[in-house]
Amino acid sequence: MKLSKKVVLLGHFGVGKTSLFKRFIDNEFSEEYKVTLGVQIKKKVVILPDGRELSMIIWDAEGHSNSVEDTRKSYLLGSHAFIYVFDLTREDTYIHLNKDLTYLKENYKVPTKVLGNKLDLVNEKEMIAALKSKDIPFDCLTSAKTNKNVQQFFSDLSIEITT
């Protein structure tokens, strides 16, 4: 059977989940903000370093306003990884990050990757220092707008969930 993995994009509204989704799958970006309602799902086939094909089934869920617990439970079923996205320019999108991560860890046995997005709008060095001082963990900082680190992130993720 073909190798396929389900990955869900989670996080506050407006942080750029849909933008990352579109950037990764169609290599497109739009300045216009269109709220996602519910979830949209798309598939992208990636070739792993060992030559295998992986179907990444990406679920782009609607954003929450408060806590990741507000996300519809059924969307999270049967996942192989979560991508928790926050907006580097909006502190309220990562201020409760640690609480959300704990919640996900306690209830689902899949890895969660943390992405700080909209890197193009901030000073990278200052941002990293600020996040460290606030004890905010992250795996990668990206910009869906400029495509910085986006492809690399997904490619690393595809390897991680298949080994």
């Binding site: 396929s4 799902i41 798309k42 598939k43 179907s55 089934i57 079923l77 049967g78």
Partner: peptide, 10 residues
């Protein structure tokens, strides 16, 4: 539709 691939999880 790729949604249905969720079935594989069960």
């Amino acid at each position: 539709h790729p949604f249905f691939q969720v079935l594989q999880g069960f």
